[in-house]
Computed example of a mutant assay.
Amino acid sequence: MLLSSTPLLSNRASFFCRPTFGLFSARRNLTVSSCSLYNFPNNGKRAKSILHFEENERRRLLLVFLVASGLSTALPSSGKTKKQNPYDEKRLLEQNKRIQRENNVPDDFPNFVREGFTVNVVTSDKYVKRDSGLILWDIAAGTGDCPKDGQQVTFHYIGYNESGRRIDSTYLQGSPAKVRMGTNALIPGFEEGIRDMKPGGKRRIVIPPELGPPVRPSTFFSSKQFEVFDVELLSIQDCKRRTIGFYSDVVCS
């Protein structure tokens, strides 16, 4: 509150006040002003008493101001914990489902509730989760033996990301993939998922990031992303090494 220059005493004693701002404008009696004293003998004691009173008021108001300021800066720190919204998971799940529908995902496709680096995989009871973190669904059981290290597997696959968008497909390429087992040619999660399949079998494999490949510009895997593969195992072939002169290769049949 801005005070005007007015005499505080009668005409026999003169105090002229310089205008200042009050700390608490709601209490005018506590407003502090800075005054210059003209020393008149008849009013000296009274002037000193007034100055002493104003000095005490200034000190008291300064103390109140400091205490109040300290409390006001400490209060916000008590509310740093973020409140969890109970509807966040439901909202994120519906958002993932909507995006997947737009991408025309196949039936019983898993849903991914992602919030930051935390991902919750939501599946039907048809899926089985292994201790390694791999999630499987056997769509169709095959017949015969499972592939062994050194044997060649021939298979078709379709790869999806968490939103259900296709990232790769041997069906679109027009020819199946052929890989020898046990040669580190496949990413760990894919090889684990196909190792106990039988020819003619179809399986959906949900691969967590820790079982995927290292993230590099040449890979379509992204950091902290799950990948989904629909795999159809066509056949298993035995392989043997063939050497002709200085030339050596592996033949599978």
Rank of each mutant, 00 (worst) to 15 (best):
K148M: 06
N39I: 13
D238C: 02
G70K: 02
V251F: 14
I236E: 02
V67R: 03
S5G: 09
S10R: 02
T31W: 13
V113M: 09
E162R: 03
C239E: 08
S132V: 09
A26E: 09
P217K: 07
P176A: 08
Q151T: 01
P208C: 07
R130T: 07
G22P: 05
L51Y: 01
G212Q: 13
S4C: 04
S34D: 07
L51K: 00
I167W: 02
V250K: 00
N96K: 11
M197H: 04
I99E: 13
G150T: 10
S4Y: 12
L30G: 00
I205E: 07
G22H: 06
E94N: 15
S169Q: 01
A26K: 09
L61A: 13
P106I: 14
S72M: 06
F229Y: 15
V67H: 03
P217A: 15
G142R: 01
S124N: 14
L234R: 02
Y171C: 03
S10H: 06
N104Q: 13
R101P: 02
N120E: 09
R98T: 15
S78M: 01
S33A: 10
G144L: 07
R166H: 07
E162D: 08
I244D: 15
Q84G: 00
L234E: 08
K126P: 00
I207T: 10
S248D: 11
V251D: 07
R204A: 02
N111W: 06
S218V: 10
G164A: 13
V250P: 04
F21C: 12
R98S: 14
D238Q: 07
K240W: 11
V179L: 10
Q95K: 11
R242T: 13
Q152D: 08
P214C: 07
S69G: 13
Y38I: 09
S253N: 11
R98V: 05
K224E: 12
D125F: 12
K129R: 15
K178C: 14
